[in-house]
Each structure stands twice: as C-alpha cells, then as structure tokens.
Design a protein around this nucleic acid. Structure first.
Length: 418
DNA sequence: TCTGGGGTCCTAGGACCC
DNA sequence: TCTGGGGTCCTAGGACCC
C-alpha cells in the first residue's frame, strides 16, 4: 500500500500558520519577483482566482475582493515543510519527500497493523494539524498513481473529508469515474485534448484502455499510467525516488541586469545551489549548461547558452563557478537587458562509479564541500559562500509583500502580547 | 513606469560520421 | 522505372508538475 500526503494550498496555508488574523480570509502567494500567482487558499479559489496568471493583471480584482497578497517566503515554507514531513514520516515504513509539500509513503510491516485506512488517514491529518497547523489531504492506493488519484479525491471531490482510499477495483472505479482524465498524474492539458478526441474523458475511461495501444499512440509514460490505474505497480519505490538526471538552478532578476559583474555573481550563486543539490544526491556532473537571456516579451530576444565539459566529473561548487568565469565573456553582451540566467548540470553520474582521469589530478575537494554544507545547515543558509557570489546583489529578487521569517530568524520570532 | 515562475524529463529532427 | 543505412550526438521545443 502507498499513500500520498500533501498540504492544501501549501504556501497559502503556511502564511496562515503564524497569522491567525488571515486564517479565514482569501490569501494568494506570488512567485519570485512577485510575478505570478502560484498558490490560492480555498477562500481565494472560491473567488475564481486562477493560478499562474501574472499578478499585475489581477491586482485590481484582488484589491476589490480584499484578498491578502504575499510574496513567496521560502525560508518559512522550507522550515514548515520539514516540520510537517517529520510528523508524517512517523506513520509509515518509508517516506519519500517528493516536493516541498508532498510525500509518498510506503507501508510494508506497518500495513499489517492498520485495519482501517480511513481512520489512519484521519490520524495523520490530526497529528499534522496539531503539531504544525497545516491542513493536509491523504490518499491511499495500491500503486503510487492510484495514491495520487485518491489524494485528488480526498481534497477535491465531495464527501471525502480529506482522506480517500483505493484498495481494490471497486474503490478505484468509484473514484476514477468521477475524475477528469487530466486530473490523473502525468496527464496534462495537451494529452487531455488528444485523449478527449478518442472519447476518453474520465480517469476511468483511461484505465479501460489497452496499455499497448496507449504506448503506440503516445508513449511509455502513458502506458505505465494505464497499468498503474489498474493496480499494477510500474513505478517501483526506487523509480519514484530516482536520482535526478539533471539539476538546474535558474532565476529571473528583480531588476533587469546590464552589467557583467551582476550577471557573474548571479550565475555563481546558481553554481553553488546546483553543487549543493548534486552533493545531496551523491552525483557528479560531466557538463554544465550556462545560459542567460533577455525578456521573451521584448522585441528582440537575446539568448545565449554554452555547454562546458569537465575533464573529470565534479560536484565541487568552486569548479562549477570556474566554468562560469570562463564562459561569461561569451555570454555577456553590452546593452542587453538581461531578464533571466541560470546553470544546469546535465549528464550526471553517481559518486560511487567516478572514473578518475590519469592525467588530471583531482582538484575536487569533497571534504571541504561537505564541511561547508554542514556549516550552512547548522548556522543557516549563506553562512559560508563563494566570494564571487557576494560581489553584488543588484540582481536579487523583488519581494514586496514578504511576511516575517517566523521560525528561522531571531528578530522575526512571533511575540505573544498579553 | 513597468510588470509575465521554476524544475525535470522526453522527443523529434538535424548534423555528422562511417 | 525507381530506388539508397544505421548510429550517435546535439538542440530546441514540448509536455508535465507544483
């Protein structure tokens, strides 16, 4: 048995944790640079506020309905996320944190101890609420895809109250026939349109298809989805939590960047982020993509990207940063108003199978990098950085409606006034 | 005044090689 | 009369997710 547990409108709910005055009000949270709306509380959803629309287009409507607007407060969300994940992790044999607000659970030995999954789901919800004040939905299923579907039902369909269980053909059919095909994990708008043309409208319609045929018409991914909807596990636990094949860090700038120093310091910050993520999954990269471009909404779109090949695969942030320094003059052009830049590690290999180069002595210093990761974990992000990250913060993002970092900064700690 | 997210994986098509 | 291979690598764009 698997479960998927995730938070209801996580960012919006996180904003409500330490601010009870907005608990009952519509809340929206914006993406980086206050660009788009990326989370809507149930009250905001009731006002038909769409997700991923540019904020400036909806400003008037939001004001008119007295909607609370917040910038993304990642420090807060990351901390609340780890608290939430800790609580959830107590309830299963195996937990895989799939994104900031959702985790898959696997039940092996635990399963024999549980006789009522519905009740167990409610226990999880209650524990998370009691300890973090975050509302979560719980879906149980005999495959990961069915757990996802149950989770959708738990939160979006009438009559489930936050928990849904798919443990046989019957319960699967009852839920899948009430779901649109595009509500299935992995089926988006484009595929949905094509499927509709084939008279496949509900999730159950999709489950009724022949997997072989779906592979022919679409891809392996759709084939596996159909199998999973029918209770056959295709995404084994190891596959669900597979290592990433590529790791990117990219960001649009708070203000357009026109000088080479700012571009450099942003790119090197991205290197540090990518390096850290590589080390987290014990991977090394053979090549780095480095890119920068102007706004796609501008008349003449400037875009350049370069591939940098390392003689020896690495996860050392300093070596990644050196690649940026080399490529930078080719990337930068005077007069361009840069809108976004980033780096991506592609062609990853496991640390375990690292192939040393006979002629290039390794300058990779795993121990140093691990120590830096440890110090930053202990004393906070940014305690130790590469010097070139620091040179300028001109490019930092815009966050006009930022709430306090209640749990990660002493000066922001909530005060109780009697 | 101007404003438009971030991340991952897959695929089709082209270039190139023998 | 008409016909012409197979593999690898790269890139851009598509698709999906939250």
């Amino acid at each position: 048995m698997y479960a998927l547990v995730d938070a209801v409108a996580f960012y919006a709910s996180a904003e409500k944790v330490f601010d009870p005055t907005i608990r009952k009000r519509p809340v929206v949270v914006l993406t980086n640079n206050d660009g788009c709306i990326c989370a809507t509380s149930p009250e905001a959803r009731a006002l038909n506020i769409p997700k991923f629309e540019p904020y400036f287009k909806l400003k008037g409507y939001l004001n008119q309905h007295n909607v609370v607007v917040r910038s993304s407060n990642y420090e807060l969300y990351a901390d609340l996320s780890s608290r939430m994940m800790n609580v959830i992790g107590r309830f299963c044999d195996n937990q895989y944190v799939y994104s900031i607000d959702e985790s898959f659970l696997q039940f092996k030995g635990f399963a024999s101890l549980i006789d009522d999954w519905h009740q167990y789901g409610q226990e999880i919800r209650l524990a998370v609420w009691r300890e973090t004040k975050l509302p979560v939905g719980v879906g149980f299923g005999i495959t990961p895809t069915l757990a996802k579907a149950a989770n959708h039902a738990a939160k979006k369909l009438e009559g489930f109250n936050g928990v849904a269980v798919i443990d046989d053909k019957h319960s699967a059919q009852a839920i899948l026939s009430r779901m649109k095909v595009t509500d299935v994990w992995g089926i988006g708008g484009r595929l949905g349109k094509k499927l509709n043309l084939m008279r496949i409208y509900s999730a159950q319609d999709l489950a009724n298809q022949s997997p072989k045929n779906m592979r022919k018409q679409f891809s392996v991914v759709v084939e596996r989805t159909v199998e999973e909807l029918n209770g056959k596990v295709c995404l084994s636990w190891d596959e669900v939590k597979q290592d990433k094949q590529e790791i990117f860090s990219t960001r649009s700038f708070g203000n357009r960047v026109t000088d080479i120093q700012s571009l450099k310091s942003s790119l090197i910050t991205h290197c540090a982020i990518v390096g850290k993520k590589l080390r987290q999954q014990a991977s090394l990269t053979n090549r780095l993509v480095i890119f920068a471009h102007s706004s796609p909404h501008e008349d003449k779109f400037y875009k350049r990207s370069y591939l940098y090949d390392f003689p020896v695969p690495t996860s050392d942030s300093r070596i990644l940063a050196k690649a940026v320094s080399e490529v930078l003059p080719l990337l930068f052009e005077q007069g361009v108003r840069f809108y976004k830049a980033g780096v991506g590690a592609i062609d990853l290999v496991s640390e375990r199978y690292m192939q040393e180069d006979l002629f290039t002595p390794s300058s990779d210093n795993q121990k140093l990098m691990r120590s830096i990761d440890g110090i930053n974990r202990l004393f906070g992000k940014g305690t130790i950085t590469l010097a070139s990250e620091q040179q300028t913060k001109q490019w930092a993002m815009k966050r006009e409606f930022l709430s306090p970092r209640y749990t990660t900064r002493w000066k922001d700690i909530p005060k109780i006034v009697c």
